[in-house]
Simulated assay, not measured.
Amino acid sequence: MDVALLPTGADPADVLRRSGPGALREALAAALPPADLVVDDAMARAWGRLVSPEERLSALRAAVALIARTAPVHVARQVGRVSERLGVGHLDVTDALVTAVTSAMTPR
């Protein structure tokens, strides 16, 4: 099930009443998988302005930590999205993901 983003505090009836059926259709058509929202939020909290390599690395680590706990069906899509958003190669994201999964499985 995807998630439609509506204005803060609004429900579908509010959007329909205030902006009409076209606006509600647009919001529903732009709905995103919950995994997208969670990964985007983690990157936004970690990445600052993505100017420095440190900011990119921080965002990458935050994203792969979540992707590592995501259902396998979502992994490839999230790797692609993170790669595009951070401007790093798919292989780099995949390598960071493998590291995150491996370290999560290693007993401490």
Rank of each mutant, 00 (worst) to 15 (best):
G20R: 05
P21A: 11
G22I: 13
A23D: 04
A23F: 02
L24R: 03
R25M: 08
R25K: 09
R25E: 12
E26Y: 00
E26K: 07
L28I: 14
A29N: 06
P33I: 12
P34W: 10
P34M: 10
P34V: 04
A35T: 07
A35F: 01
D36F: 09
L37W: 06
L37I: 14
V38N: 00
V38D: 05
V38Q: 08
V39C: 08
V39P: 01
V39Q: 04
D40R: 12
D41W: 02
D41R: 07
A42D: 06
A42M: 04
A42I: 13
M43I: 11
A44G: 01
A44Q: 02
A46Y: 03
A46M: 02
A46K: 03
A46N: 02
W47G: 14
W47E: 04
G48R: 06
R49S: 13
R49I: 02
R49V: 03
L50D: 01
V51S: 06
V51L: 13
S52A: 09
S52H: 11
P53R: 14
P53E: 15
P53D: 15
P53F: 15
P53T: 15
P53C: 11
P53S: 12
E54P: 00
E54D: 13
E55F: 05
R56W: 07
R56S: 04
S58E: 10
S58V: 06
A59S: 06
L60H: 06
L60A: 06
L60N: 05
R61N: 12
R61E: 08
A62Y: 11
A62S: 09
A62N: 06
A62Q: 09
A63E: 02
V64Q: 00
V64L: 01
A65W: 12
L66S: 00
L66A: 00
I67F: 07
A68I: 13
A68S: 13
A68V: 14
A68C: 10
A68E: 10
R69I: 10
R69W: 03
R69H: 11
T70E: 14
A71E: 11
A71Q: 07
A71H: 12
P72E: 11
P72D: 09
P72W: 09
P72I: 15
H74T: 02
H74L: 04
V75R: 09
R77H: 14
R77M: 10
G80P: 01
G80S: 11
G80Q: 05
R81P: 00
V82H: 02
V82K: 01
V82M: 05
V82D: 01
S83D: 02
S83P: 02
E84S: 11
E84C: 03
E84F: 10
E84D: 08
E84I: 06
R85L: 15
R85C: 08
L86P: 01
